[in-house]
């Protein structure tokens, strides 16, 4: 890549004054560095990845409202986690966390377990139990 060809496309980084470093060759063929504001192919990839998470979160929310899963799954998706990451944050086995996805099991959880989840998601127990007005992104 030539120094002049380092892409300066619009991206969500630009507004934050965050430019990353790229390696490119100058007119004499010598390597140098150049800051880039963004490149469309990867901006689109990132946007798609974020849309994917938003869709997963919206779906999880709907499932909670339909009483098909517990708010734990919704918050897990909201925080871009998967089962393994959430389990290691709350310090429980994965199968136990998965079990807590069942509304019937979740509703019987004691306060200390609920507090563990609330702490990880940085919310109160009340917010953990009631997600009606929570965002999808």
């Amino acid at each position: 890549m030539k120094q002049k060809e380092v892409p300066q496309d619009k991206s969500n980084l630009e507004s934050l004054n965050f430019r990353e470093l790229c390696y490119a060759v100058d007119e004499n063929g010598e390597y140098t560095t150049e800051n880039s504001t963004g490149w469309d192919p990867k901006t689109i990839a990132l946007d798609n990845a974020i849309k994917d998470i938003e869709e997963r979160t919206a779906l999880a929310k709907q499932k909670v409202l339909n009483d098909e899963t517990s708010p734990v799954e919704y918050y897990m998706e909201l925080h871009k986690m998967d089962l393994g990451i959430l389990a290691s944050y709350v310090g429980l086995w994965q199968w136990r966390v998965k079990r807590h996805f069942k509304p019937a099991v979740f509703n019987k959880l004691n306060n200390s377990t609920l507090q563990k989840y609330a702490d990880v998601f940085d919310i109160s127990i009340d917010e953990l139990k009631h997600i009606e007005n929570r965002p999808c992104k």
Binding site: M1, L21, C22, Y23, Y31, T33, A45, L46, A49
Partner: peptide, 26 residues
């Protein structure tokens, strides 16, 4: 989604472009 993941790993902050190939050329 998978294809997007390849591109992100190749070009996301940190590779210097081209999946570290430019840094290696330097």
């Amino acid at each position: 989604h998978y294809l997007g993941q390849i591109v992100r790993m190749q070009e996301e902050i940190g590779t210097g472009g081209g999946g570290f190939r430019y840094i290696y050329a330097a």
